[in-house]
Design a protein around this nucleic acid. Structure first.
Lengths: 339, 339
DNA sequence: TTGTAAGCGTTATCAT
DNA sequence: ATGATAACGCTTACAA
């Protein structure tokens, strides 16, 4: 494997000049530049990652993380992924600061970013509100040379360098496919969303509904929103079940599946009911193990926590943005036996 | 983050002495040793990975890979994972040599290992026959300081430092769970194996049968071996279907699912049949898309290719064996919508 | 038993 | 426009 030193010797110049050419810093005589590029190509030069990283860590990178979802156990697993990567990046002299905010307000997120900025972060990982003010903030950071990676949910119209998270539409389709496979004859499904303003819920439902078109025996009987709350979910599920005795499948596109399951059990409808949910939280595992929930579609929360930091690290050390913009998690189907 | 240099300064000794203590090379005065260890602990010293790797790559590591399965498309994806990691490790001055052998003979594997040894490899990744002669060979390498990682199938009684691959038993259980979810009433299932001597087939079937005990409505109607051959699989599936009109589910624990599906189609039995298979090969994808196969359980072939090399690299650079011995792939359930 | 110094490949500063 | 040199953190051969 060729090194800068070797190229320099072959070209009869110094390492500095080769570096200038290869990394486009400073001006170089066009003739020597051409010569160097030619040699580099001939030797199939690829920068040595260990060397780059070692040289880069004089800078002691500091990364900021902004996420909502205090009280949402899904995000605890995301945090676990962040901690894991934090441990890893420690040995490269990196530090990580986490701002976890409870409120869903846009201003709270902007304040959190500003606090991180005051700490002089070099990169940002954020699970953003899809809001123009936040997009603008991300663009400001970008212009300051601070890259941003979004995770879990994306934001439109910003210069974030990558997104790490679910393909919600495809997950919705997968849920429809599962209900198709698990049923026969006429199927009447109830769809439960959290909130119509939350993009990931609406995307899941869009995918679900689009896939249902292929399965003409499956009909949508009812739809409601539960505000991601188990108690609301219980009440509204109970109401739905009594109003719709024909329902034999439920699709929970948001949180609150546990409350819903309790209502199904209370109504004694569990034996003729196929329930599909999302994510692997404690209560969901319980309901899968006892057979009330048939399957849950998971989205790898740990990687959603760790990969954004890895991408930021690579971007800052190499100076290159990630090759892939969208890093989608697999739609992982979990049932009792592989949960 | 503390460095060896800092510790040396604080302890009033040279970097060499600190290195000797921290990496247990050479003798050191017990008093200074204690002092150094104390300081290292107080500063929570963790070696800098970039530094280690950079220093290690004077050695230009060479890794050997031995695998069977020429003509088995599953292993093409494993190769893809190997190539991916090869590209990655190139920038650390590593080389990779692949020996892919068609025969299943033990001697062929030993010959392949010897050829790699002649090339002076520093580490071995192998998908081994579970045979004492090969275990002994692996132990010989171990004693020469050459670590081995097994992948796809494991071997008993050897000093291989890690295994990367499926938990076949659990995958079999998952298949049983799927058939349970996709059916109702009385279920009569046919089980198809490849060869009774292949551990991964028998393990899958053991997991499947054990899980069936929980589902008393599911009964095993028939069992046969197809030698992993699509034509044998076609004929024997056809025979099974005609002898067992009650069969409404088939579990293919080995290759040959495509031939079997063709027989199901030829018999016109596809509408009342749930078929579960393994792996994602082209023919399987075709049969999932047209609805003949309901689900296939996949085992992440790319990671089975890349992770063993990564583990060898880390082991050789740090001098430490992997923290985890068993690296199990998830049992990934694939259906039409998430294939 | 301990210290010194060179080297891994890259980057950055300073001098020419 | 180009070269020389030090630095990142670790390993190792050699010297004391």
């Amino acid at each position: 494997m060729a090194t800068i030193k070797e190229i320099a010797e072959l070209a009869g110049v110094s390492r500095g000049t080769v570096d200038r050419v290869l990394n486009k810093r400073g001006a170089v005589n066009p003739k020597t530049e051409a010569k160097i590029l030619e040699i580099a190509k001939a030797l199939d030069y690829k920068p040595n990652r260990a060397g780059i990283v070692l040289a880069a860590q004089k800078k002691k990178f500091k990364f900021g993380v902004v996420m909502f979802g205090i009280g949402n156990p899904f995000f605890d697993d995301v945090i676990a992924g962040i901690r894991e990567k934090e441990e890893d990046l420690q040995s490269y002299n990196c530090t990580i600061l986490i701002k976890r905010i409870s409120a869903f307000g846009v201003q709270d997120q902007i304040d959190a970013i500003d606090e991180l900025l005051a700490e002089e972060i070099n990169g940002l990982a954020i699970s953003p509100q899809n809001n123009p003010a936040i997009a603008q903030k991300i663009n400001e950071l970008y212009d300051m040379g601070i890259p941003t990676v979004t995770f879990n949910t994306d934001i439109t119209g910003s210069k974030r360098i990558a997104y790490v998270g679910s393909n919600y539409y495809r997950c919705g389709q997968t849920a429809a496919g599962l209900i198709h496979l698990m049923t026969s004859g006429e199927v009447h499904v109830g769809i439960v969303s959290g909130n119509s303003n939350v993009l990931c819920h609406t995307e899941r439902i869009a995918g679900f509904r689009d896939s249902l078109k292929e399965y003409t025996n499956i009909h949508e009987s009812a739809f409601f929103e539960n505000d991601d709350d188990d108690f609301v979910s219980y009440d509204k599920t109970a109401q739905m079940l009594s109003e719709h005795p024909e329902i034999n499948a439920i699709f929970y596109a948001a949180s609150g599946a546990y409350g819903g399951c309790k209502a199904v059990l209370a109504a004694g409808r569990q034996d003729n009911m196929k329930i599909v949910t999302f994510d692997k939280i404690e209560k969901t595992v319980e309901m899968i193990k006892n057979g009330v929930i048939s399957a849950s579609i998971c989205q790898n929360p740990r990687i959603q926590g760790s990969l954004p930091l890895q991408l930021l690290f690579e971007c800052l050390t190499t100076g290159e943005p990630p090759k892939k913009e969208y890093h989608y998690m697999e739609a992982e189907i979990r049932i009792k036996e592989n949960i």
